[in-house]
């Protein structure tokens, strides 16, 4: 390790604020780049699930209609 203490590592002879703020901003953006697609995927899956359910209930209603129809 180049620095003698943790305090020096944070302070970096006055440059710490620049180095660590760069690091923090990059970290936040990069975490966002992983979280966002995962959320998009979840949302897409939920949508497809809903559609499947909708289709199933529509089909069930249709079948019921046919079954309930009076025989002539």
């Amino acid at each position: 390790m180049y620095f003698d203490s943790l305090q020096q590592l944070i302070w970096m002879n006055g440059h710490g604020i620049y180095v660590w703020s760069s690091f923090a901003i990059s970290a936040v953006i990069m975490i966002g780049l992983v979280v966002k697609p995962l959320r998009q995927k979840q949302a897409a899956m939920r949508n497809i699930e809903l559609q499947i359910k909708l289709q199933a209930s529509k089909q069930a209603a249709k079948q019921k209609e046919v079954a309930d129809a009076p025989h002539s």
Partner: peptide, 29 residues
Amino acid sequence: FYSLALILFARAEILRREYRASWVKQLVS
């Protein structure tokens, strides 16, 4: 990291655009 993010975004995009495909429906159910 780029490859990882690209794959994650592409997988979400695939699900969003291929929602009619039978393999996607199967995957979800």
